[in-house]
Amino acid sequence: MSPGTISAASGQAGIASMALWSITVAVLILLLAIDIVLTRRPHEVHMREAVGWSVFYLALPVAFGAYLWGVFGGTTAAEFFTGYVVEKSLSVDNLFVFMLLLAAFAVPSDLVQRVLLYGIVGALVLRVVFIALGAAALRSGTWAFLLFGAILIVTAGKVWAEARKGEGPKVDIDAMRSVRLLRRFVPVTGDYRGFRLVVREQGHLAITPLALATVAVFATDIVFAVDSVPAVYGVTEDPFLVFVTNAFALLGLRALYFVLQGALMRLRHLNHGLAIILAFIGVKLVLHWAHGIWAWVPEIPTAASLGVIVAVLLTVTLTSLRAGRAGRADRQAEPSAEEAGNRSVPGS
């Protein structure tokens, strides 16, 4: 590849025809409509319901990947599965922040589904915008690969530094500009009013805490889109594959939230793994840019990328579980205050 050019995949429309794009978008809208119908009545989600939908949304990308393999070949399918694994691992980090936001706003358990749905729809819209911007940047020249790689490497450094300090995702509602702006110009009700975002009180319009929570979730979606889209462009340059990997990763978040609600807190090394994955993809993008200028610079194949990403995720999961067991053992070994006092008193 010569300087100022890009691969055929990014310079053209990609593998998807207009018909495939139309069918994919129609199916996505149908799935979102089903989610809206399922959440129209406030109710608390039980584990059986959450697991069922999680299995369904995990089976969808597997079936779609098999379709890509049969129609477009193993390389395209490998790019899709690698991009999906990257996006799914990053989306789990989204769930951490969503969990903190829902707790900070004290969202009732029967309204959690709707807030998550709003967040997923907002994330999909933002992904479409960022994917289009990314595709336009790639068409303008190989400098975009260097830019995307730099963004991911810097982000990886920040995530790793926070993980080393033992700092997980933090949420400061009062520091969020979007929330402060709403509170300054619009009165907020003191309680939730079901699914209603806007109500009329004493002749004046007011927003509910549900509206504030929704705006806060949407604001965090912007931050996640900045990292997520460059990451998947590091795996594939095809806008269609970038879109479907994001869509499949986001669709199952609502159900996955309830399945992993307890387990998320035990994945204490997840951020370490995400930092490594982001740095790895950033380096892959930089090498891809350099290869276009100096042909002797090696590139990282998609199969190797998938292997590294899966290995990192498995490693941090195992180390998190091991650290959790060690922590529980230490707590059980510590004597209680009463036992310590009894031991220090002779003849007790």
Rank of each mutant, 00 (worst) to 15 (best):
P3T: 04
T5G: 02
I6P: 03
S7H: 05
A9Y: 12
G11Q: 13
I15W: 10
M18R: 14
W21Q: 13
S22Y: 10
I23V: 15
T24F: 06
V25C: 01
V25S: 05
V25E: 03
A26K: 10
V27N: 07
I29P: 07
L32V: 11
I36F: 12
I36T: 15
L38W: 12
H43G: 11
H46F: 09
A50M: 01
V51R: 10
G52T: 05
G52H: 09
F56H: 00
Y57I: 00
L58M: 10
P61I: 04
P61F: 03
F64D: 00
G65S: 13
W69I: 07
V71K: 04
G73Y: 09
A77I: 05
V85R: 00
S89D: 12
L90R: 02
V92K: 12
D93F: 05
F96W: 03
L100T: 11
L100Y: 06
V107N: 02
V112T: 12
Q113L: 06
R114F: 08
G122L: 10
R127N: 07
G134T: 14
A136F: 15
G141H: 02
T142G: 15
F148N: 08
G149S: 02
I151C: 04
I151S: 01
I153P: 00
G157E: 05
W160N: 00
E162R: 10
A163K: 01
R164Q: 13
E167W: 06
P169G: 09
P169C: 07
P169N: 05
D172V: 10
D174F: 05
M176Q: 07
S178A: 13
L181A: 15
R183E: 10
P187M: 07
P187Y: 02
V188R: 08
G190P: 00
E201M: 03
T214Y: 00
V217A: 04
F218T: 02
A219M: 13
I222S: 08
V223G: 13
F224R: 00
F224Y: 13
D227S: 02
S228F: 00
S228P: 09
V242D: 01
V242C: 03
N246R: 00
A249I: 07
G252I: 05
V259M: 11
G262M: 12
A263Q: 07
L264Y: 09
R268Y: 10
H269G: 00
G273I: 03
L278D: 05
K284S: 15
L285F: 13
L285N: 09
L285Q: 13
V286K: 13
V286I: 14
H288N: 15
W289A: 13
A290M: 15
H291D: 09
W294R: 11
V297E: 14
P298W: 14
S305Y: 10
V308D: 09
V310S: 00
L313S: 11
L314V: 12
T315K: 14
T317Y: 10
T317D: 04
L318K: 11
L318C: 07
T319D: 13
T319V: 12
L321R: 08
G324T: 02
R325I: 12
R328C: 05
A333F: 11
S336N: 06
S336C: 13
S336M: 07
A337N: 12
E339S: 14
G341Y: 15
N342Q: 15
G347K: 12
